[in-house]
Design a binder for these strands. Structure first.
Length: 272
DNA sequence: CGCCAGGGTCTCG
DNA sequence: CGAGACCATGGC
């Protein structure tokens, strides 16, 4: 299938999903939900095994209008540098529970360790998938049945309590992750923030990565520093930075944020 | 060893 | 609303 521009490496290395394994140049193995997939991208052409176009197209958001998004990119030097470095990076449509759960574990953790925790949670509590070395992400029910110390054994530390509590909210049906997709963004954000371990930042990650709200801007320490630098010294509280991001990053602010984040993180000489 | 990481929550001005 | 303390863990 043809999907230019699409850069698989950038997409899978930009801290959105944490379970894919690189098995060759531009070639990755992982799971889309519970379906094991091998995928390779060359020159805008995508090859996937199994050849399930619909599944791959949807997961990697190959329908997102990247050229239109690029036309709306901010014109400042920082954003344009991030754009030329990350062209072809796409915001993935993640399964909702998987996204919510992994970002609850993400607080004050580096990407590499989020990955390690996520893989351990899959290994211990996820359903085995034939043809995949990686297990599926455990269901809300499976994690709801865990104790806090079960999850501490996966390296979660104080995050274990929140993950179990949120799993129980979802498994019990008190929160329906599919039903709330119909809500407008402010109401959806509020619903997510009611869950234990979900604050402003994690809610925005879930809005962007699992609910297709492409204007949602997660502000972590990296993006915080970048926005502060873009504001030229004017000091910024969290609310000021959020307002600035909403005003300056345009209709696809979430995309811009993801490009800024990844570019900064892989630039050895990044000093805001 | 000290510092930092895709923060949330509670308390106190 | 804003600032601070506290929460665990691993990498460098």
């Amino acid at each position: 299938m043809n999907a230019a521009p699409f850069n698989l490496d950038l997409t899978l290395e930009s801290g959105q999903v944490f379970h894919w394994e690189k098995i060759g140049p531009g070639e990755w193995r992982g799971l889309i939900g519970e379906t094991p997939v091998c995928i390779q991208s060359r020159c805008g052409e995508v090859f996937a095994e199994p050849h399930d176009v619909e599944l791959v197209w949807n997961y990697f958001s190959l329908d997102h209008p990247l050229e239109e998004i690029y036309r709306d990119f901010p014109t400042d030097a920082t954003s344009q540098a991030a754009l030329s470095a990350c062209r072809g990076l796409r915001i993935i449509r993640q399964p909702r529970w998987e996204c919510l759960a992994t970002f609850i574990t993400s607080s004050m953790k580096q990407v590499a360790h989020i990955r390690a925790m996520s893989l351990e949670i899959r290994r211990r509590f996820g359903r085995k998938v034939v043809g995949s070395p990686t297990n599926a992400y455990p269901s809300p029910e499976a994690l709801a049945a865990c104790t806090e110390s079960d999850l501490r054994a996966c390296g979660l530390g104080y995050r274990a309590k929140n993950l179990v509590a949120t799993a129980r909210e979802v498994a019990s049906g008190r929160v329906d992750l599919a039903a709330i997709a119909q809500l407008e963004t402010p109401a959806l954000r509020a619903a997510l923030e009611c869950l234990p371990g979900v604050g402003v930042k994690v809610a925005n990650c879930v809005l962007l990565f699992a609910y297709e709200r492409l204007d949602a801007v997660p502000i972590d320490v990296w993006i915080g520093r970048i926005l502060l630098a873009m504001r030229r010294g004017r000091s910024g509280t969290a609310t000021q930075l959020a307002r600035y991001a909403r005003r300056r990053l345009g209709p696809y602010a979430g995309y811009v944020q993801q490009y800024l984040f990844h570019h900064a993180r892989v630039s050895p000489k990044f000093t805001p």
